[in-house]
């Protein structure tokens, strides 16, 4: 038997995460209609990242994963994604003619 599963039911946590995700969705949707200048994008991305983190940590069980390896895999993916975006931007943001 997988003992730890029955020890404490995670159901409450699942529903809490779900509710938070829905609230975040509503917030991001509403905020988009308010003029915040560049901060519209910032808010949208921050909320999206919070939501993604919640899904990854609690629904995908990274939080409880005893193993570092999985966290390393996730970190590697994010790191290389930022390499792709960042180094490409390094070209686009410094072109003197565009």
């Amino acid at each position: 038997m997988t003992g730890h599963a029955s020890a404490k039911s995670p159901l409450k946590m699942y529903f809490a995460v779900w509710a938070t995700l829905l609230v975040f969705t509503l917030v991001t949707f509403k905020v988009a209609f308010i003029e915040l200048g560049p901060f519209n994008a910032v808010v949208a991305l921050v909320i999206a990242t919070l939501k993604a983190t919640l899904v990854a940590l609690f629904f995908m069980h990274i939080w409880h994963a005893g193993e570092r390896l999985i966290k390393v895999a996730v970190a590697a993916a994010i790191f290389f994604l930022f390499l792709l975006l960042g180094l490409t931007l390094s070209d686009y943001l410094t072109r003197p003619w565009s």
Binding site: T25, A32, I34, I47, A52, V55, F59, M60
Partner: peptide, 25 residues
Amino acid sequence: GGLYWHFVDIIWIYLFPLLYLIDRH
């Protein structure tokens, strides 16, 4: 299988603001 499903969900979590909410005011 669940991991895969959640991942597809996460992609959408980003697609939604990036595609639908660029400049709505």
